[in-house]
Design a protein around this nucleic acid. Structure first.
Lengths: 155, 155
DNA sequence: AGTGAAAAACAATGGCG
DNA sequence: CGCCATTGTTTTTCACT
């Protein structure tokens, strides 16, 4: 999928990932385009999958999610089938916000968000560790989050 | 800030973080509420800060961001001033999507997104390591991302 | 490539049960 | 809280550069 983006498209994407509630007219004003062009370009970017979706960013603390943890997981004797089961499981777990396979000594890095430490303990001890494939789990708790915007550096 | 949320609010929040482009009528249909009530509740949730903002989720690969890395940073002799400088810097870096202070042997965990390994190298060697406060940096590259939705587990 | 204006869709309020 | 009607925005389409 090779898509040519001009500088208007990039500016539009930057504006939308910053604030998708802005009207086409408002965005047009900031990037120097008419509302109708913003609409047309936006639709093209949605159609070709560059814009994946629109979502509301919620306030975790206000909703009681006070614990964020990074959980490093090391797998044991790599049976293909057990590793697949593990991946399916973490993908399906709602508390797992991110799951990546890493280079280095840790096979997987999970970002987990829960209401309290008890819930984290339950996830590690009752869900992750019982998995056949899992050999070792190491959790680090985020004491403070300086930044969590997950915005692409389009600038 | 103590806010009472009933099950309609929770369902509404779940629907909005899943897809904020849905119309109030569509959301109302899925959560069992009229469009006008969805509108009223949504506004209240925006006003009291439970809904922070609306954003477009973009496709990183389509935009050329092929490298995601987790960078663990250990600070040296903790001069308060140097640590503050470090925090200000990572917060201002657009390539840093997340920055957390952690429990354990690593002081900070950064999630970095860039176009190629060269850009990652530049960030580590030319931006992070020259910082006074930084003693040690260890990067792990995400070879595969299974999940990256950053949705709160409201279910 | 782009604009501007009309038409269609939608959000937001208020009143009533 | 549902329903309905109204009002004002906003999106989208169309004609025209």
């Amino acid at each position: 999928m090779q898509i040519a983006l001009d500088s208007f498209d990039v500016k539009l994407l930057a504006a939308l990932q910053e604030n998708s509630a802005a009207t086409n007219a408002e965005i047009g004003e900031t990037i120097g385009l008419s509302a109708s062009q913003v609409s047309r370009r936006r639709q093209k970017l949605e159609d070709n999958g560059i814009i994946r979706r629109y979502r509301a960013a919620l306030n975790p603390e206000a909703l009681g999610f006070t614990v964020t943890a990074f959980v490093g997981v090391t797998l044991g004797a790599h049976s293909r089938e057990n590793a697949r089961k593990f991946r399916n499981m973490v993908t399906a777990m709602p508390e797992v916000q991110e799951a990546h396979t890493l280079t280095g000594d840790v096979d997987y890095m999970l970002k987990v968000v829960v209401r309290d430490l008890k819930a984290l303990s339950r996830i590690v001890n009752d869900e992750l560790l019982p998995q056949e494939a899992v050999q070792h789990v190491k959790s680090s708790i985020a004491m403070d989050t300086l930044k969590d915007d997950n915005l692409l550096p389009l600038a």
